[in-house]
């Protein structure tokens, strides 16, 4: 099978990952809904994953893909805990507006 990298080149993937990452960062700054912010974080994570897979193919090395696998595991754990925290916060203050969650500041 013909390889995609031969036709479009690794730099296209890098640009794609950069843009995806920037969109994630923009989302966190732009929104104040905690769940949407979570989604933005997922987007950023996926940008990194995408880059890892691209380079894994580029170097013909399985390690990159293994890392993506672990990243997914960590992301799953993170989402589970994060959402649990959000649920707990929602129960306590009835909102998940991030600007209202300033009680932890020193």
């Amino acid at each position: 099978m013909e390889n995609v990298l031969q036709q479009i080149g690794i730099d296209q993937y890098i640009y794609l990952a950069i843009l995806l990452f920037c969109i994630g960062a923009f989302g966190i700054l732009y929104r104040r809904n905690a769940i949407v912010m979570f989604m933005s974080i997922e987007i950023m994570l996926n940008a990194a994953n995408l880059l890892l897979v691209a380079f894994s193919t580029y170097h013909e090395d399985a390690n990159g893909q293994v890392f993506v696998f672990f990243t997914m595991a960590v992301a799953a754990a993170e989402v589970a805990i994060g959402l649990a925290i959000l649920v707990a916060i929602y129960r306590n203050i009835g909102s998940i507006d991030i600007d209202k969650l300033k009680k932890l500041k020193g």
Partner: peptide, 17 residues
């Protein structure tokens, strides 16, 4: 400096960027 630690994640992220 403590005032910068105001719990506003947006500000943190801005600084990070």
């Amino acid at each position: 400096g403590k005032k910068a630690q105001n719990g506003n994640i947006g500000l943190y992220l801005f600084a990070f960027v």
